[in-house]
Amino acid sequence: MIRYLDLILRLAIWFLLTADGSLANIIIGVGIALLLPRSYTAPGALKDWLRALWGIVVAIPKAYIEAVEIIFRPHNHEDVTMERVKPQRTPGLIFLDIFLITFTPKTIVLKYHEQGWYEVHRVRRRQPR
């Protein structure tokens, strides 16, 4: 089941990059998705994939809310923090985690450290002291 989710993720990235639904593009996308090397680290559990997909569904309205907040209430303070990667994440799940963090307007992943950390840039409102 995880291999199918990995294949679907690769095809989704391909179609987002090419924005072409022609038969030739579909054949090329399937071919590339099948030829890309597979990761043979610990297999991701179906539960982790479902949580990541649910996170995408939740991130869409959150992104709109944050965009409106930034428009009407200026965010002029910046932080760079380190966030721990969840244990036993496959490369596909790490990609989805980075996508979710970067999808919202207030955060962006600057770097993924191989030791298991994301370097995250955030904008926020300065808290009164």
Rank of each mutant, 00 (worst) to 15 (best):
R3D: 01
D6H: 08
A12G: 11
A12M: 05
A12L: 07
I13M: 06
T18N: 06
A19M: 11
G21E: 15
G21I: 13
I28E: 04
V30E: 04
I32E: 01
I32F: 06
I32V: 15
L36M: 15
S39A: 13
Y40Q: 09
A42R: 10
A42L: 10
P43D: 00
A45C: 02
L46C: 01
W49G: 02
A52E: 00
A52Y: 00
L53P: 04
G55N: 12
V58Y: 03
I60Y: 01
I60G: 07
I60P: 03
A63G: 12
I65Y: 15
I65D: 07
E66Q: 11
A67H: 09
I70Y: 14
I71H: 08
F72I: 15
F72C: 13
F72R: 15
R73A: 12
P74C: 15
H75Y: 11
H75T: 14
N76V: 10
N76A: 14
H77S: 12
V80M: 14
T81K: 13
M82A: 13
V85C: 12
Q88E: 09
R89E: 02
R89W: 09
T90D: 05
P91L: 13
F95H: 03
I98R: 05
I101V: 11
I101L: 07
T107C: 14
I108S: 03
H113A: 12
G116V: 05
E119D: 09
H121A: 05
R122Q: 10
R124C: 08
P128V: 12
